[in-house]
Each structure stands twice: as structure tokens, then as C-alpha cells.
Computed example of a mutant assay.
Amino acid sequence: MTDIARAAGCSQATVSFVLNNTQGIRLSPQTRERVIEAARVLGYSPPEMPALRAAVPSSMLDGTIGFVVDQLATSPEAVVAIEGARQASWDAGNVLLVAQTMNDAVMEPRAIQSLTARGISALIYMTIFTREITAPEFLHDLDIPVILLNCYTADRAFPAVIPSEIAGGQRVTHHLVEHGHRRIATITGEPWMQAAQERLAGYRRALATADIPFDPDLVVEGDWSASAGYAATRKLLSLNERPSAIFCQNDRTAIGCYEALKEAGLRIPHDISVVGYDDEEISRHLFPALTTAILPHLAMGQWAIEQLEGAPRAGRGRHPITKLECALVERDSVAATPERR
């Protein structure tokens, strides 16, 4: 929808209203035709699901799926995962009910109890930060399938899906190496977080594979914010030998990095290449557009729904942890070193 909105010269919301044939929205025939034509040119076709669902008798619907997440407002990842689950649920004629729990020891079990009282046939349990959890006892007691999203347990009692962060960090760094960069800096997230640890591990693995010595001066700790990216970039530029490329471990950090580089009179990517991570909407609109890695929460939400077919009841058996690829999105913020040009 983002691509279609850009091509049609309208908002993503307008594209959604047109493609889903939303009733009660007054859009001109010209706007509708422009959106449909942009979709056709880009190779997309309007979904047939609304009409299909209307034709399916309610007795044939498979049921209602519960989705609980500890936090919704801190970042877009939870909403993206919910959208992936929603798409896959609706494809099968299921309804998705969502609850935010804030990981509260009292309210979380009450929220899940409220969902089960409404007859959910399965539960997706998500955490906003990727991590190992100790599953609450009430999850083991549920008589429905439970899927963990962005988290996992040591005993592997539930099917789980997380991003493949080490491979993602390695792929992003390797992309810079492929362009001839050897002095590659990275601005990390908060070190206690698994995502930051694994992206850094992937960065180090890519350097080792390319026989590039690890330089701790090129690693600056951040906190995922634009202000931290700005401060960290200024620190990197103060080194006797500045880096030729900077791996920002999320896109918000890259925003601050861009500002610091431009303030210093440096051109991206001619003077310094920059890569991000997460593929947030802002990455498409930075100038130059930011090369980044996709955080696969949409695919993770879809995967979670797909696993429910034939899934065992909660806490039964031992299950693998599935890791989904953080694919690289190449845009305009990386260039070859002078030696490679």
C-alpha cells in the first residue's frame, strides 16, 4: 500500500479504503481509478477477501484467535505483527482479538482469561523485545494451542518464532564489505537487549569472515534513539581515522547519524556510507533513501497463524525455535569506496 500510495499521489489510508472497498468513505471516482491504476501498473490486484468473506456462512468460520502483547505503543513492531496475524487469520475466516497486558502479573492472566471466556481457539503470545521468557503457569494450563512470537522458553514447550538477528547483522555488514569498506563502525542498541547483542555478534562475524580486525573504537553504544545516533556519529568522526561506513543498528539511530554527517559537511554515501536496520517507514523518506534490513514482524505474525493448523495443545512436547530472515533492502545510502569506484 505504501508503494501504491506513492505512485498514486495519495495517503496509504486512501489506498486501503479503495482496495478494501470500505463503505461510507466519500472518495471521488478519479481518486479510486488512480489508486486502482497505480496498483495495476505495479503488478498488484485489489484483494477479493471482503466479497469472499461475505459469501462464507458464519457456521463455516474456523473461530476466534487471541493475540496478547506486553506493549503496543513503544514501537511499530507489535502493530506490524498483529497486522500479519490479522491478514492470515482473515484469509482462513478467523477473527483476531487483541489485548495489551504490560506484562502485569495480575492483569495479564485476567486478560487471557477474558479472551478464553470468549471462546478463542488458539492464543498468540508476543513480547515487544526479543528474549527468553519463563512462561507463566497459566499458559501451560490452557487447553488450546499457544504460539510464542518474538520470545521463547528454555524448555521449548511452545512453538516460537523470532527474527534471525545474528544473520541480519552479518548480512548488513557484509553488504558494506562487498562495497570495499574495511573501516566499518557500528552504533548499537542498549547492550542488555538480545537484539543489540545479536546484531553486534553478526557484525563481528562478518568482519572475521572478511579478515578485518575488530576495532572496539568503532563500536559505540546507543539506545536506539536519533539523539544517540547523532552523539555516537560525532564521536566516530572525532577519531584520528574516521570510518568509511556506519552500521546503525536501527533506523531511528540512522536519522541522528544522517544529521551529524550533514552537519559535518559530509555527503552520504559519497563520503560515508550508512546502513540501518528495521525498515521503518522513515527509511524510505530520508535523503538519500536508507539501505536497511527488514525486521520480519509481518511475516512472524503470518507464520504464527499458519502454525495453528494441527498445533498441539499448550505446553505439550518440545518445539524448535523458528528464525525468520531479516532481508536486506538496498536503497541509496551505500556506495563503493574510492578504490572500488
Rank of each mutant, 00 (worst) to 15 (best):
D3Y: 06
D3C: 09
I4R: 00
R6I: 14
G9R: 10
N20H: 14
T22S: 12
Q23N: 08
P29Q: 09
Q30C: 12
R34G: 11
I36D: 04
A38I: 07
R40H: 14
R40S: 14
G43E: 15
P46G: 11
P47L: 12
E48F: 05
L52T: 14
R53W: 05
S58T: 15
M60C: 12
D62A: 05
E77M: 03
A78I: 11
V79R: 05
V80H: 08
I82N: 00
A85G: 15
R86Y: 05
R86C: 08
S89Y: 00
W90K: 15
D91Q: 11
T101V: 01
M102Q: 06
A105F: 14
E108C: 01
P109W: 02
G119N: 06
I128P: 00
F129I: 08
R131N: 14
E132K: 02
T134I: 11
A135Y: 09
E137L: 13
F138T: 13
F138M: 08
P145S: 13
I147Y: 00
L148A: 03
L149D: 02
N150L: 04
R156F: 11
I162W: 01
P163T: 03
I166R: 07
A167T: 06
R171P: 01
T173L: 07
H175I: 04
L176C: 11
V177A: 14
H179P: 09
H181T: 04
H181V: 04
R182A: 14
R183M: 08
I184M: 10
A185I: 09
P191K: 12
M193E: 15
A195D: 08
A201R: 01
G202H: 03
R204V: 01
A206Q: 06
A208P: 06
A210N: 13
G222P: 00
S225T: 15
Y230W: 11
A232K: 13
P243M: 12
P243I: 09
Q249A: 12
R252T: 05
C257D: 05
Y258A: 02
L261D: 00
I268S: 07
H270M: 10
I272E: 03
I272W: 12
E280N: 08
I282K: 09
S283I: 06
S283M: 10
A289G: 14
T291K: 05
T291I: 02
I294M: 14
L295R: 11
A299W: 00
M300P: 02
M300Y: 09
I305W: 01
E306G: 02
R313L: 13
G317D: 00
H319Y: 02
P320D: 13
I321E: 00
I321Q: 12
T322F: 12
E325A: 15
R331V: 04
A336P: 06
P338D: 11
